[in-house]
């Protein structure tokens, strides 16, 4: 913990020194950025744009997780589905995010549906592949046990299936979230008129590094907070039964 703090302090120091050498236009000092963050927060613009971006993150993340889980389960459990969908998955996995985004805007239009769909489509193949691994690793002997004791479907999903999939779902969530929040910014830059990505685009046109950082840093902070206070506790919760991990 202490060495982490030291590391952050050194980073701030390097930043400060860098701004002295490079000049405030290329790299504004930490305090200058803080002042702009404060101003944007006071005007409400910062929260408005953060909220817009966060909503897109949540919507596309949820969509991709739901579809990816369904698809991954189907592919992991049924050979024919797997054989049919696997080439699609490989193509999607290797399609650059930018291509998906531009095509979505061209085909669907410059609207929210295209934006969220494009982000979700970027995350979908990784979520699917991860859940498919989980579905393949399902313990058939526990499934038999559940059948013998005639456990109702709801019990089987909640107490037999989900706990086995949980580590894979958590992995898909974690990798998915970090992918989604990077892709969302590109989507906003290219075709939305609000959100952190849009503001960064504006800052780019004005070569305004201070404003760019004033949006980027709070956004990174928000995503780290979500990771620390939502994703990690969920991971800990689902793995609490494992021996040697408390």
């Amino acid at each position: 913990m202490l060495s982490r703090l030291a590391s952050l302090l050194v980073l701030l120091l390097v930043w400060q020194l860098g701004s002295v050498f490079a000049g405030p236009r290329a790299l504004p000092a930490p305090l200058a950025v803080l002042a702009v963050i404060d101003a944007e927060a006071r005007s409400g613009a910062l929260f408005f744009n953060l909220a817009a971006t966060l909503l897109r993150v949540v919507a596309s993340f949820t969509l991709a997780m739901a579809l990816g889980t369904a698809l991954g389960l189907a592919m992991g459990r049924h050979k024919p589905v797997d054989r049919f969908c696997d080439p699609w998955l490989i193509i999607l996995l290797n399609l650059p995010a930018l291509v998906v985004i531009v095509l979505a805007y061209i085909w669907i239009g410059l609207n929210e549906t295209a934006a969220i769909g494009a982000v979700a489509l970027n995350k979908l193949p990784i979520a699917t592949a991860t859940v498919r691994e989980g579905a393949r690793a399902l313990d058939a002997s526990l499934d038999e046990m559940a059948r013998v004791f005639a456990m109702p479907l709801g019990v089987r999903v909640r107490h037999v299936l989900l706990p086995q999939l949980a580590p894979y779902l958590a992995a898909a969530m974690r990798s998915g979230l970090s992918l989604v929040w990077k892709v969302v910014l590109v989507v906003e830059l290219l075709g939305r008129s609000n959100g952190v990505g849009f503001e960064i685009g504006v800052a780019f046109q004005l070569f305004d590094v201070t404003k760019l950082l004033a949006y980027a840093l709070p956004f990174v902070g928000l995503m780290l907070a979500i990771e620390t206070f939502i994703v990690q506790p969920i991971e800990r919760h689902v793995s609490r039964w494992r021996p040697g991990r408390t």
Partner: peptide, 23 residues
Amino acid sequence: LGMVFQEPRLLPWRTVAENLRLA
């Protein structure tokens, strides 16, 4: 039907009481 398999086949993520109740 009640069955004892060759291996215990308990749900590792549920307590003993929950294993009994869920069955």
